[in-house]
Amino acid sequence: MNKSLVLNVVRQEGPISRAQVAKKTNITRATVSDIVNDLIADGAIYEGGEDNSPVGRKGILLNYNASLGFGVGVDIGGTKISFGLFDVNAELLATKTVETYKVVTNDIFISLLADSIREFIAENNRDLTSLQVIGIATPGIVDYKKGIVVEGSPNLPGWENLNLSARITEHLGVPVVLENDVRAALVGEVWKGQCQNVQSAILLAVGTGIGSALLMDGNIIRGFGNAAGEIGYMLFEREQLHMNWDNKGCFESLASGSGLAARMKGEGEQTAEQTETAADIFVAAKRGDAVAKRLVEEFTDYLSIAILNLVSVVNPEKILLMGGLSNAAEDYLPRINENIKKHTFSRTSVEVTVSEIKDLAPLYGISILALRIVQPTVQFLKDIKLV
């Protein structure tokens, strides 16, 4: 415990002297000195710089060694895959994005993913032998502890009952941590985004599909079957109980990017605009197309209802939007916040905003989740329970 305490003080407060460490930890100077010597031998900290205190004997300052090793974070999506190189202080050093591999089996996909990770490491002039851990954020229901994709995305091949962690470890020989992409993004928001120093928050991912992640009273919520936050299956009316949503889910069919595009297609020839994608629909609505405008308003109101239902359950301090449709938030966010204001009171009122770190959120989050496995004594989010 003392070693962990000293290491975290050096990481959070450094450069710092031994005397200052002793004062902040209430550990004797002799014990601090012994611990520091061990940590220097481990390579976890190093000496560098001089204490400029005007009184007393000048000491050599202690620094956290963020370059002791590195990890790679991966955010897998239906259309793109993002890679992030991070140090042991969970800082992103480099990023890269490629198109999602169009292959028919998960064997080929995993082999290509391993090759891409090796290539990414080489491009950044790193030695594979210094790779400590890999973190992967993926769509679907994920068993975080076992590293298994229980139920995955239809856009990825064979992405069900897949022991992705073990398969990637076979290729690259390091531990692999797996997490749902939206949940990883919420951890990233807590680490580097708008949810820093927040105890209760909701992150809504509104893109091709719809998902959410929940932080309640300092706890990242996964649920009994690791399926907490699967709001794409939310219902709004009694009649919807008897409708077939083709495994997509009612809310996702009504308000996701793919659902919005499908609904517009169902309107047939009633619109003269080119509206093959959700982005096209928002553009058409801005230009005054009546059908597109109506669908955008319905999308906004369904999203408002879902958010209000979540607010009633979670009472969050922050609600953030991310995903492809958040890029058009200026077209619908004022109406959402107006709806929320109308149906909440002083203790539940909350403003919905758009993520500022956006696509970096899942990379930051998966780096934190990965490092806690190989650096368990380091406290990155001391007031947040991740498991």
Rank of each mutant, 00 (worst) to 15 (best):
V187R: 07
V187Y: 12
V187I: 11
V187G: 08
V187E: 12
V187N: 09
G188L: 07
G188T: 06
G188D: 02
E189D: 06
E189P: 12
V190R: 08
V190Q: 06
V190P: 01
V190A: 13
W191Y: 12
W191S: 04
K192R: 10
G193I: 13
G193M: 08
G193E: 12
Q194H: 15
Q194Y: 06
C195F: 01
Q196G: 02
Q196R: 14
V198P: 02
V198I: 15
V198A: 07
Q199C: 09
Q199L: 14
S200L: 01
S200E: 04
A201G: 08
A201V: 05
A201T: 03
I202T: 06
I202M: 08
L203K: 06
L203Q: 04
L204C: 06
L204I: 13
L204G: 01
A205K: 07
A205E: 01
A205Y: 03
A205S: 14
A205M: 13
V206G: 04
V206E: 00
G207C: 03
G207S: 06
T208E: 04
G209P: 00
G209Y: 01
G209W: 01
I210Y: 04
I210C: 09
G211T: 02
S212I: 04
S212K: 08
L214K: 02
L214E: 03
L215G: 02
L215I: 02
M216V: 13
D217M: 03
D217W: 01
D217P: 01
G218R: 04
I220L: 15
I220V: 14
I221T: 09
I221A: 08
R222N: 13
G223S: 05
G223V: 09
G223A: 08
F224M: 12
F224W: 07
G225K: 15
N226S: 14
N226F: 15
A227I: 08
A227V: 11
A227H: 10
A228Y: 01
A228R: 01
A228E: 04
G229D: 05
G229N: 08
E230V: 08
E230K: 11
I231K: 09
I231V: 15
I231H: 10
Y233W: 09
M234Y: 00
L235N: 11
L235Y: 04
L235V: 10
L235T: 11
F236P: 10
F236V: 12
F236H: 12
F236I: 12
F236K: 10
E237C: 07
E237W: 12
E237K: 15
E239A: 12
E239N: 12
Q240D: 15
Q240K: 08
L241Y: 13
L241N: 14
L241T: 00
H242Q: 13
H242W: 09
H242C: 09
M243E: 14
M243T: 10
N244D: 15
N244R: 01
W245F: 14
W245Y: 11
W245T: 14
D246S: 13
D246W: 03
